[in-house]
C-alpha cells in the first residue's frame, strides 16, 4: 500500500530533473566528489559507480522514510541514479551531488505514488494512528543486523505518514522548517507541531533505548 506523504500536489516537486531544484554546496569531501562528478560527466562509468556507492544508502533511508515501502524504495533509488546519469551533463559539479539526487528521488517517489492506485483514501491514511501491519519491515529486516535498529525502523514505520514524512525530512535530510513546509505544502507552524508529535511518539516507542 502506497502512502502519500504529501498534503496535495506541489508543483515544485514535479520539476524536470535538474531544473528548478535547490542545490546546496557540500560541506566536506567536496573536491573528491567534484572530481568524481566531472569524470562521470566525461563518460567515466567507474566514477559514476563510485557516486552510486557513496550516496545510495542515504538516499535509500530517505526514500524509505517517505514511502515506508522497501520495494518501492529500491525501484525509486535505481530510477534516481538512472535519471541522474542521463541528466548529469546538466548538473554543475561545483554543487553538492546528494541534494540533487535527493530531489530527483523525491520527485520519482511522488510520480510513483501518483501512478499507483490508492486503495485507501488519503484522509484514512493520514488519520491512521498505530498500525501493527505497518510494523512489518519485510526485506528491510535483512539489512538491519541489530535488533535495536529493527526496533527503530519499526517505530518509524508505525508513525502515521504525516508525522513520519516531517520527521524524515528533518532528521535524515536536515531540511529547515521552511523547506519541509514548502515540500509538503503545509504551514511552517504545522511542521513544528508535527515534528514535536513525531518525536514524542518515537520517544515513547523507544524509551528504553534512550
Amino acid at each position: 500500500m502506497t502512502e502519500d506523504f504529501r498534503e496535495e500536489n506541489n508543483p515544485r516537486t514535479v520539476d524536470k530533473v535538474g531544473e528548478g531544484t535547490k542545490i546546496i554546496p557540500s560541506p566536506e569531501n567536496k573536491d573528491h566528489e567534484r572530481k568524481l562528478v566531472e569524470a562521470a560527466q566525461n563518460g567515466d562509468t567507474k566514477a559514476f559507480g563510485q557516486l552510486i556507492r557513496l550516496h545510495q544508502k542515504k538516499l535509500f533511508r530517505y526514500i524509505y522514510g517517505l514511502t515506508g515501502s522497501f520495494d518501492q524504495t529500491e525501484d525509486i533509488v535505481q530510477e534516481t541514479f538512472i535519471k541522474a546519469w542521463k541528466a548529469l551533463k546538466r548538473f554543475h559539479p561545483e554543487y553538492a551531488f546528494y541534494p540533487w539526487l535527493a530531489t530527483i528521488a523525491r520527485n520519482s517517489a511522488y510520480n510513483l505514488v501518483n501512478r499507483e492506485e490508492k486503495k485507501e483514501s488519503l484522509d484514512k491514511i493520514q488519520e491512521r494512528g498505530y498500525d501493527p501491519v505497518s510494523q512489518e519491515l519485510g526485506p528491510l529486516e535483512k539489512l538491519l543486523d541489530d535488533e535495536s535498529r529493527k526496533r527503530f525502523y519499526r517505530a518509524l514505520k508505525a508513525l502515521p505518514v504525516k508525522y513520519r514524512s516531517v520527521f524524515v525530512l528533518r532528521h535524515f535530510e536536515n531540511k529547515s522548517y521552511e523547506e519541509i513546509a514548502s515540500f509538503l505544502n503545509i504551514p511552517p507552524g504545522t511542521v513544528d507541531s508535527r515534528l514535536f508529535r513525531a518525536r514524542q511518539m518515537l520517544m515513547e516507542a523507544l524509551k528504553d533505548l534512550l
Binding site: 556507492r53 538491519l144 541489530d146 535495536s148 527503530f152 532528521h171
Partner: peptide, 14 residues
C-alpha cells in the same frame, strides 16, 4: 540506529 548495514546488499544494489 538508522544506519543500514549489510554491505553486500549495497554492493549488489549498486
Amino acid at each position: 540506529k538508522s544506519y543500514l548495514g549489510k554491505d553486500e546488499y549495497w554492493e549488489r544494489s549498486a
